[in-house]
């Protein structure tokens, strides 16, 4: 019940941003997808004049990729700021933490809401779009199953940025010293994961980022002075 109360509070605080991310991603994503479907309908009727071998052929839903990544990253960043930076700014940490709970419960509630938010706002719409695109015959090129998992990994990168921002928000060092290290590390992980490395390299990098940053979030909350 205590955990639920914390989750409800965190969820309510992040709800406007989740809704915004959902609207942006679903709205623009649906437009892009629909546009692609209409384009392909026209293409089916045309005589083929291009090269037959396409070594770097994009997936039919590749237009969604950058939108998915940016939305996940943006939502992760904003949620972390809302959950970890704003309480320091308006001095509500003490009010939140002075209650009959363990500190780790409060951390769990925040992380749970972050994962839930990314899943509901970005992950589930992505799943819907993929299922729509993967219907046989929707596009001339097949939509491969691995693209689905790549999309979810992008959602995971959004969580990486969330953790990096949380580490930076919780860090009590000056901004020109190590305060930005969490963000910088997360940015490095995201860059390397997107750097054309074949799978499972992005997966391994994401796992490393999760472990390194996740441990630090817990440890910083335990050692932080409020």
């Amino acid at each position: 019940m205590k955990f639920l109360a914390l989750v409800k509070k965190e969820f309510r605080e992040c709800l406007p941003w989740m809704c915004l991310a959902f609207i942006i991603f679903t709205g623009f994503g649906a437009l892009l997808l629909r546009g692609k479907v209409l384009y392909e309908e026209g293409r089916r009727k045309e005589i083929w004049r291009e090269e037959q071998v396409v070594p770097w052929c994009t997936s039919p839903i590749s237009d969604i990729g950058p939108l998915l990544l940016l939305t996940a990253l943006g939502l992760g960043l904003v949620m972390a700021i809302r959950q970890f930076y704003v309480p320091a700014f308006d001095k509500t940490w003490a009010f939140t933490l002075h209650r009959p709970i363990r500190l780790i419960t409060a951390v769990h509630a925040k992380l749970f809401v972050a994962i839930l938010g990314l899943t509901l706002s970005v992950g589930l719409p992505w799943t819907g779009m993929f299922l729509y695109a993967a219907i046989p015959g929707r596009f001339m090129d097949p939509v491969l199953p691995k693209v689905f998992w790549e999309g979810w990994l992008m959602v995971g990168l959004g969580f990486i940025l969330y953790l990096g921002t949380a580490v930076s928000s919780l860090c009590q060092a000056r901004w020109y010293t190590t305060k930005v290290c969490g963000l910088a590390f997360a940015a490095g992980i995201i860059f390397l994961a997107m750097a054309e490395s074949p799978f499972p390299a992005p997966l391994v990098l994401t796992a490393i980022g999760l472990v390194v940053l996740g441990i630090q979030v817990y440890a910083l909350m335990q050692s932080k002075e409020f």
């Binding site: 089916r44 083929w48 071998v53 070594p55 839903i61 990544l69 693209v147």
Partner: peptide, 26 residues
């Protein structure tokens, strides 16, 4: 081809060979 396409922050690509019918359509 199998990794994320860093230039566009895009999904992985595919090596495709398109085949045409007698009417030269896909």
């Amino acid at each position: 081809v199998e990794g994320y396409y860093g230039g566009n922050a895009d999904f992985s690509r595919m090596l495709c060979v398109r085949t045409l019918g007698p009417d030269l359509r896909w």
